[in-house]
């Protein structure tokens, strides 16, 4: 019987001590949560679709942080659903990056 489990399916795996340090949420953590929540409540996508995309991100992204994997997964999902294209994401990031560098 294969016991393969997804990278998200953690129950019962060995783990180290829990890091109890509290961290402030960063503005972009709240922003990505808000963008997703509004789209979910408007019926553009579902939490189940986002979870599936989170489960499918590469392991380094999965391990790279909660909001990091959320953001990548939401990008994947929006592209998959033809809400945006990859090129639009690239162009917009380039535009925002240029604006940020100009401001520095």
């Amino acid at each position: 019987m294969p016991l393969e489990r997804g990278q998200h399916d953690l129950g019962g795996l060995p783990g180290g001590p829990i890091d109890l340090e509290e961290h402030e949420l960063l503005p972009w953590h709240k922003m990505i949560s808000a963008v997703f929540t509004v789209m979910r409540l408007k019926g553009e996508l579902t939490i189940d679709e986002l979870r599936r995309c989170i489960e499918d991100v590469p392991p380094d992204i999965y391990d790279g942080g909660y909001y990091e994997r959320w953001t990548i997964a939401l990008t994947d999902l929006m592209v998959e659903k033809r809400l945006i294209t990859r090129d639009e994401v690239d162009s917009k990031m380039a535009e925002l990056r240029a604006a940020r560098e100009a401001a520095e």
Binding site: M31, A34, V35, V38, E68, L74, M78, L83, I84, E88
Partner: peptide
């Protein structure tokens, strides 16, 4: 990731998937 988040937000607004006001309301909520 901030850049990517901003890009998703801006594109979502441009495409009419969300409004800036709706997003702001939820940021305030969180």
């Amino acid at each position: 990731f901030e850049l990517l988040t901003d890009a998703l937000k801006e594109l979502s607004i441009e495409k009419g998937l969300v409004t800036a006001t709706e997003v702001r309301e939820y940021v305030d909520f969180f």
